[in-house]
Design a protein around this nucleic acid. Structure first.
Lengths: 211, 211
DNA sequence: GAAAATATTGTCCTGAAGGACAATATCGAT
DNA sequence: ATCGATATTGTCCTTCAGGACAATATTTTC
C-alpha cells in the first residue's frame, strides 16, 4: 500500500510525511506522479488548495490515467457543494486538509475496504437534505394528493404547474366554473387559502428555504 | 469500550460473539440492557429484523435513556429510505446485518471517532440524488435571484412563500403599491407572467415533476 | 456632474380568483 | 331504493392581482 500526496503546501507536506511513513509528496500531476500511482492499493491525496483550483479536472485526469486508484480530496475550506462535485467526479473521499493524522488513517482504512468517506458534518447535512427530499417529502405530496378526489387531483396538478383556471378548463374540457369548484374543494380539503399555497405544497417547498 | 447487541436471531448472536470479544447480546431493550448501556464509549448494535419492526421507535427510546450512546442499525434488507429514517432518528450508522466482522470493526472505529457510517452503495446513491438536488438546482434558483435587485429579491422571496401583496407590504414596511411595482419588475426580469410562476421557479419545480 | 438604475408611492382600470348562495346528474354503498 | 359522495355548471358579488399611464427621491455608474 502506498500513499501519494499532491500539494504545493510545505506545511502539509511535513504533516503527511510524519503521519504516513510511505508518503510520497508531489507538487502536481506530473508524468512521474502518474507512473508512481500506477500500482495496486494506491491512495492519492489530492489537495484542493484554493477554490479556484480545478480539483475535479485533476481528479478526472488522474482517474483516467490510473482508474484503479482511490483518490481522496483534501480541502482547505470544505463545503457541501464542493464535496458533491468531487465525489461525483469519482473521488473516494473528501475531508479537511488539516485533518489529524488519525483521521486520515481512518479515511484510508475505510476507502481501502471499498468505502467512501465524507466527514460527519457533511454526511449529516447530506442526510438532512435527503431525508426531506427523498423520504418525507414525496410522502407529503402523496398524502396531499390522496386527500383529493380523482378529478380534484387532475385540477390541482394543473394548478401546481401554474396554469390559470381558463387554461385548465380548456385542457380538461370542462367549464371554468367547474374548475373553480374543484379548486375550492381542494382548498377546503388541504386547508389552504389560495392556489399559490396549493401549488407550493404540491411542489414540495416546505423543507428548503430561500434566502 | 463495550459493544451491546440487540437481536433475537441466534445466528447473528453467534457471529457477533465471535467478532467482538466484549459483545453482550440482548433480545430487546430491557431495563437491564439500558443499565448496561449507560456507560461511556458504548456502541449499541440494533438489529432491524423485519421491515415491520419499529427500529426508529426503539432507537429513540434508547437515545432518550442513554443519550451519549452511539447506535448502529443493522438491517437485513438495507434501503435508502430506511437508512435516512434511522439516521434522522439519531443513529450513528446503518449497515447490512450480515456484514463481515472486519466491516463492523471499521464501522465501530469510525463512529467512535465521532463519524457517521453509511455503506458505500447508500452513500453513492445519496450523492447521486443530492448532486442534482443540492448543487445544480439551487444554482438555477440563485441565477434567478441574481437577476433581481436587492429589493426585488426581498419581495420575490416572500411571494415564493405564498404571501399576498398586503402581507408583504406589512412585512417590509412599504406600500402595497410598492410591492406591486417590485413584483411587476420581477415578472419582466424573469420572464414570467404571474406570481405563481415566480413562486414556482424560486421553489425549484423544474426537476421534480408532479403526476 | 450627468445619466442610468433603483426605490418608493399614486390613481385608474381590467380581468382573474374565490366565496356565497345555488341546481342537476351519476355512481357506489347500504 | 335511498343516501352520500362526486362531477358538473349557473349567477352574483367582492377582493386581489396586475397593467397603464404616471411622479419623485436616492444611489450607482460613467
Amino acid at each position: 500500500m502506498q500513499n501519494l500526496f499532491i500539494t504545493s503546501s510545505g506545511k502539509l507536506r511535513a504533516d503527511w510525511e510524519k503521519a504516513f511513513a510511505s508518503a510520497q509528496v508531489y507538487a502536481a500531476t506530473s508524468p512521474e506522479f502518474l507512473k508512481a500511482a500506477n500500482k495496486a492499493k494506491t491512495v492519492i491525496w489530492l489537495h484542493a488548495e484554493t477554490p479556484q483550483h480545478d480539483v475535479s479536472g485533476s481528479l478526472r485526469q488522474i482517474l483516467q490515467a490510473v482508474p484503479q486508484a482511490r483518490v481522496v480530496v483534501l480541502s482547505n475550506a470544505p463545503s457541501q457543494q464542493h464535496a458533491f462535485e468531487v465525489m461525483s467526479a469519482g473521488a473516494s473521499g473528501y475531508c479537511h486538509a488539516y485533518s489529524a493524522a488519525a483521521v486520515l488513517k481512518e479515511v484510508r482504512s475505510v476507502i481501502m475496504h471499498g468505502g467512501l468517506w465524507l466527514g460527519r458534518e457533511l454526511l449529516q447535512q447530506l442526510i438532512n437534505v435527503s431525508t426531506t427530499l427523498v423520504s418525507n417529502q414525496p410522502d407529503q405530496v402523496a398524502d396531499a394528493l390522496d386527500k383529493l378526489t380523482a378529478r380534484e387531483r387532475d385540477v390541482a396538478i394543473e394548478v401546481a404547474k401554474g396554469l390559470s383556471n381558463k387554461e385548465i378548463a380548456r385542457l380538461l374540457n370542462i367549464t371554468e366554473r367547474t374548475v373553480k369548484a374543484h379548486i375550492s374543494a381542494c382548498f377546503e380539503r388541504l386547508k389552504v387559502k389560495d392556489r399559490l399555497q396549493l401549488a407550493l405544497i404540491l411542489n414540495d417547498k416546505s423543507s428548503r428555504q430561500i434566502n
